[in-house]
Amino acid sequence: MKATPTLLVVGRLYLALVLAFLYLPIVVMATMSFNTSQFYQLPIDWTFDWYVQLSSNQRLLAATRNSILVAMATTLIATVLGTAASIALFRYEFRFKKLFQAALFPPIAIPWLITGTAMLLFFFWSGIGRGLHAMVLGHVALALPYVIIVVSARLRGFDADLEAAARSLGATPWQVVRYVTLPYMAPGIIAGALFAFAVSFDQFVISYFLSVPGISTLPVEIYSAIRQGFTPEINAISTLVIAFSITLLVIVSRFYRFGDSR
């Protein structure tokens, strides 16, 4: 349907408005993190003070380190396990395959509050305990389905004849994987890994329930800071975190086309 020029302009204005709605609060927060005044004094008096103060906030620094550690462990484990599972789901036919595929959705679909409290209760009761290792356990469970979905999406376009061709040319099974299968999967695996990192790094709910006083991740620390009382330092660290996660996702999007297969 050919829209009239007026309708087109209205449509685009509307789109701009929605984008403004999505980005406005983030921009406001980022701007305020450079403002000397704690109370939104305008016009803005630019300063880096809050960022400087941040660099000496031991609690936030420790939490940042924890976040990165947990995210790296999660990325490594989820990518390896998820890639292996994707290959099995792609290559083999077996009974209950549909069930296995369906089993990936609970970690995504069930509200994190439920999964988080269930993990808290089970880990506490079974002796696994809470802390960074428990967070890794939980984050991997959340990241696995994403890795499998992203890697499987890549594999779906894979022509099984490529492997057959490599074998007919004399390649051993290992050579087939090394020269044909893995290079083909690489963009999917990289996207899956970045996704896993983002999921873990930005995860709040699960980490919140599995943290113990003194051992927490950045989002948990930010949450308790918000609840205890506002300081512009939170603006500063939040701005850094959101800038980081947006950068990460822009990189992911270079490897994985978002709306295509979700």
Partner: peptide
């Protein structure tokens, strides 16, 4: 014998050229 030990050359219907 598995395919890689037979020393045969095969051309596939869709050519199966390695895209990378």
């Amino acid at each position: 014998l598995p395919v890689e030990k037979r020393n045969i050359g095969m051309m596939f219907q869709n050519y199966a050229l390695f895209p990378n």
